[in-house]
């Protein structure tokens, strides 16, 4: 993939908090419609990386280039919605703040896209966690972004709600949007992402497809770097096991 073709091109992104380097020299490029999962242990820098891409945090160094000069859609880890407002009121508020040409049309579109038409007038605080997360996602999509950033989107959802959300995300990618999401559920990275980016202590440890990660672990690419599996690591070939082994081999 060339830089010119990339919908999102990230170069040498670094963020320091005082003397601590939370994200160090991370770089990748995404094509339209591509899904990238960012995985890594707690404190690896996943949220910091997404926050920089979303424009919430200013990078200490590095560059973020977008093919389309539209801000990324951002779905933060904690639901950033007003619980006292209804679903429609939340969407309308952010549509107006985004200065969309037709806020009401955008609200109607997002209600339809997220399947929340029936709940439009309900206060968000009275919705289930899954539906609250759909409102959270809908707000991130209001401005019809070319790149959608989701920070652990399925963290508080039950399996059925997760499946519905992944359906929605896959459909969004199918429309040509780049989707970046962080997750602790490694199987979701394997199942739904085209590529995975592994972070450890802010450092970019791996960028490639889930299969390539498994191949690395299996020793095809760098067998000397892989530690023998532990007693609880499960059978070889399991992506989650491969991921754990990968991190262990690199001291994480």
């Amino acid at each position: 993939m060339t830089v010119a073709a990339a919908a999102l091109d990230v170069v040498g992104l670094t963020r320091c908090f005082g003397s601590r380097m939370a994200v160090r020299d991370v770089g990748f490029a995404l094509e339209r419609g591509e899904k990238l999962a960012i995985i890594g242990p707690n404190g690896a820098g996943k949220t910091t990386l997404l926050s920089m891409l979303a424009g919430v945090l200013v990078p200490t160094s590095g560059a973020i280039n977008r093919a389309v000069e539209r801000p990324c859609g951002w779905v933060p880890q904690q639901q950033a919605v007003y619980s006292k407002l209804s679903v429609a009121e939340n969407l309308r508020l952010f549509a107006r703040l985004e200065r969309l040409a037709d806020p009401d049309a955008a609200v109607a579109r997002m209600l339809a896209q997220t399947g929340l038409e029936d709940r439009a007038q309900e206060q968000v605080g009275r919705l289930s966690g899954g539906n609250q997360q759909r409102v959270n996602v809908a707000i991130g999509l209001l401005a019809d972004p070319a790149v959608l950033l989701l920070d652990e989107p399925t963290a508080s959802l039950d399996p059925r709600q997760r499946a519905r959300l992944w359906e929605l995300i896959s459909a969004l990618a199918g429309e040509g949007r780049c989707v970046l999401y962080s997750t602790h559920a490694v199987t979701e990275a394997e199942r739904y992402a085209d590529r995975v980016l592994v972070l450890g202590d802010g450092e970019q440890l791996f960028l490639g497809t889930p299969t390539e990660l498994e191949e690395v672990v299996a020793g095809d690419l760098a067998p000397s770097a892989i530690a023998p599996p532990g007693p609880s690591d499960g059978p070889a070939g399991d992506f989650e096991t491969a991921f754990v082994q990968f991190l262990r081999a690199r001291g994480h």
């Binding site: 979303a54 424009g55 801000p71 951002w74 950033a80």
Partner: peptide, 13 residues
């Protein structure tokens, strides 16, 4: 409390 601040100040307000 509603975690809305980061969403607001990323270019909206």
């Amino acid at each position: 409390s509603e975690h809305a601040y980061p969403r607001l100040v990323r270019g909206l307000v």
